[in-house]
């Protein structure tokens, strides 16, 4: 039991299960899944489907955070990739043509990758702080997306494209398979090659990694490229869901949800050892939380208040100072124990 509790995924999973439990108790329909035309429907299925864009973005964010970085531009990148893809489809005039769709999807992904490479260049090569470097694209990205859509919200009508976000395969939403595939691919690349451990090494101790001959620059660059590519795909999913490229609304605040998902999953913002499984749990937690808030009758627009509460709670729990403070409070209530003053300084 103790070993289970000490596992790094213990608390994230407990939080997710608790959230599901609360929902189930307050509305038993939450866990009910109905079958209609061979497709599954229900709140849980919705969560699986709707979480796909966030899942992709959060996976990329996990890699970036593991290198001690952050990527604020993911929402803007989503806007760009969606705009590129939909504009190509719209301009082609043949929205059902598979080769047009293939080109559009390919171009959207390439746009995302290019954005990621750009971020990586600023950070890994020029040495600009990640927050600022990605802020540049966060600012300019939506403008670029608007340029691509010529200032309008591009809408298309293409059933195959719609399938990405809204279609079903073997009873489950296609978007869920996209999530699964992304998780699997990222996990394989990180854990079946040496990328994962080298990324962690760079995130924990950049200087020691350099001395051990690790190519930090390439690894950091790669993390941002991956984040851009995944955000690009998320942008396609988003545009497929609403069948429109809305440069202003696409992926709005998703960078914050993604960061939150990563942190909820137990990966520290200070970089280093990361947990993809934790991020997956974190994404489902956030999506469930959003669904809960909606169910409680709170207008979706007020969701940020709850998110603020969660952010504060999570960062406070991560803050050693807060834990010490709580510990002291607890100590005062129980038996007073004379604790030796801890010295952090080292003799020299």
């Amino acid at each position: 039991m103790n070993a289970v509790m000490k596992h790094r995924l213990f608390w994230p999973v407990v939080v997710l299960l608790a959230l599901i439990l609360v929902n189930t108790l307050s509305r038993p329909s939450f866990v009910s899944i109905t079958v209609q035309d061979g497709r599954l429907y229900g709140s849980l299925i919705d969560i699986l489907r709707n979480s796909a864009p966030l899942m992709l973005v959060a996976l990329g964010m996990t890699l970036v955070i593991a290198t001690r970085g952050i990527d604020l531009s993911v929402g803007a990148v989503m806007a760009v990739s969606g705009a590129v893809a939909l504009q190509i489809i719209q301009d082609s005039g043949d929205a059902a043509n598979p080769s047009v769709l293939a080109v559009a999807i390919g171009a959207g992904l390439l746009a995302g990758l290019a954005c990621g490479l750009w971020n990586g260049f600023l950070i890994a090569v020029l040495g600009i702080q990640p927050i600022i470097a990605t802020l540049v694209l966060m600012l300019a990205g939506r403008g670029i997306a608007l340029l691509i859509t010529r200032g309008f919200i591009t809408t298309i009508n293409s059933d195959p494209y719609k399938f990405m976000a809204q279609g079903y395969v073997v009873g489950l939403p296609f978007a869920f398979y996209v999530s699964l595939a992304a998780i699997a691919i990222v996990a394989v690349i990180e854990r079946r090659t040496a990328l994962g451990v080298l990324t962690e090494a760079v995130g924990i101790n950049p200087e020691a990694s350099r001395l051990a001959g690790v190519r930090a620059r390439g690894i950091i660059w790669g993390a941002y490229a991956a984040s851009g590519l995944l955000a690009g795909f998320a942008g396609l999913l988003y545009s497929s869901n609403i069948m429109a490229a809305d440069a202003n609304a696409a992926g709005l605040y998703i960078e914050l949800d993604a960061i939150l998902a990563v942190v909820l999953g137990g990966t520290s913002l200070a970089g280093g050892t990361f947990s993809l499984a934790g991020t997956v749990v974190g994404v489902f937690t956030i999506q469930t939380l959003k669904s809960t808030i909606t169910f409680l009758g709170v207008p979706p627009a007020v969701t940020p208040v709850f998110m603020a509460a969660v952010v504060v709670l999570v960062v406070l729990i991560q803050s050693s100072r807060f834990r010490r403070w709580v510990g002291r409070l607890g100590g005062r209530l129980s038996v007073r124990s004379a604790q030796p003053v801890e010295r952090t300084e080292v003799a020299s």
Binding site: V136, L137, L139, A140, G141, R142, G143, I144, A145, L146, L147, R150, G151, A247
Partner: peptide
Amino acid sequence: DQSWTRITIG
């Protein structure tokens, strides 16, 4: 287009 504002600022 006004979107040039954000791009130029960026």
